[in-house]
C-alpha cells in the first residue's frame, strides 16, 4: 500500500490512449471467442473459450482495476480469492470426477 509520495499523475491523453488500447484488445478477444465457439475445435472449444475469458478478465483486473499499480497487500488479497476458489474447485471436483469415472 503506497502511503508515501505518489508519482505525478499521467496526462489525460495518455490515460485515454492506454484505456482505448486495452478496450480494443478486449473487443478483439470477444470476437475471437465468438469465432472459436463456431470453429471445429472438438473438445477444445470450452478450453479455448475459457482461456480467452481468463485473458480478458486478467486485462480488466490488472489494467482497469489497477492491480498493476497496487501494492503487494492488494495483490495478495486478490490472489487469496483465487487460491480459496481453487480449494473449492479442486476438492469438490475430486469427488465429482472420481464418482463419474466409476459410474
Amino acid at each position: 500500500m503506497s502511503a508515501g509520495p505518489t508519482p505525478p499523475a499521467p496526462s489525460g491523453a495518455r490515460i485515454w490512449r492506454r484505456a482505448l488500447l486495452v478496450w480494443a484488445g478486449l473487443i478483439l478477444l470477444l470476437g475471437l471467442s465468438c469465432l472459436a465457439a463456431w470453429a471445429p475445435l472438438g473438445g477444445w472449444t470450452s478450453a479455448v473459450n475459457l482461456g480467452l475469458a481468463a485473458t480478458q478478465a486478467a486485462l480488466v483486473a490488472v489494467l482497469f482495476m489497477r492491480l498493476d499499480e497496487a501494492g503487494p497487500l492488494v495483490r495478495l488479497t486478490a490472489a487469496c480469492g483465487l487460491f480459496w476458489l481453487a480449494i473449492l474447485f479442486t476438492l469438490c471436483l475430486t469427488d465429482v470426477l472420481s464418482r463419474l469415472a466409476n459410474a
Binding site: W84, T94, D95, S98, R99
Partner: peptide
C-alpha cells in the same frame, strides 16, 4: 480447515477416493 469439509459426508454417497483424501 478449508481442506477438510468432506469428513461430514463419508456416508453421503461421495466417492470412496474423495473420502480417503478428506
Amino acid at each position: 480447515g478449508f481442506f477438510t469439509w468432506g469428513h461430514h459426508m463419508f456416508t453421503s454417497g461421495m466417492s470412496p477416493f474423495a473420502a480417503l483424501v478428506f
